[in-house]
Amino acid sequence: MCNTHDHSHTARTVLTVEQDILQRNNLLAERNRGYFEAKRIQVINLMSSPGSGKTTLLEVTIRRLQDRFPIYVIEGDQQTSIDADRIALLSVPVFQVNTGAGCHLEAGMVNHAVKHLEPSEGSLLFIENVGNLICPALFDLGETHKVVIVNTTEGEDKPLKYPHIFREADVCIINKIDLLPFLAINLQTLRENVLRVNPRLQIFELSATRGDGMGEWCNWLKLKLRT
């Protein structure tokens, strides 16, 4: 570059920055993470496209586990408190974040929500991200586990079309397996596509409405809370 020499009539300077654009979010996420670790709070970030059953899965999971652990929920949606109202019916503390035009939750929003919720030591905190398979992938919230949910009705190719979110997650839930008899989807192909994008993903196949596979998923959560 030719900017190394200084022109006497100007104070033009080249500054080397070399900083990650998401640094502010990542720093806040690490602060969240430190707080969660110190209080032994397991934080599960649920991500999926809209309508894949995140809230129903949450309701069923809460009913199965709420006698064993204190459970808290952060709900992310662009608008309304419909989901928070559903969770509140289960007598679980819940905080609704409305992102307005935003398509994902960021670490600062979780930080704010946690200050209101004040989750107790050894608790389970669910974050239901904004329904979107794209944007939430980029924003670390400080969670312990990222869980991506994909539906049998969404077909076999979603992991290949939206690879970032599957890449970032450590658990994949294939939901609505009760609908398999009515669908042309090949579950094995979906499973293979999930593992092509991320061979480390732990897969749970379940139906939140009918209850299939819920035991395994809840056992996994119990195990996480014990360690």
Partner: peptide
């Protein structure tokens, strides 16, 4: 990568 590499500033 998602990085700001450098900026040129003036006073």
């Amino acid at each position: 990568e998602l990085r700001v590499k450098s900026i040129v500033i003036d006073k």
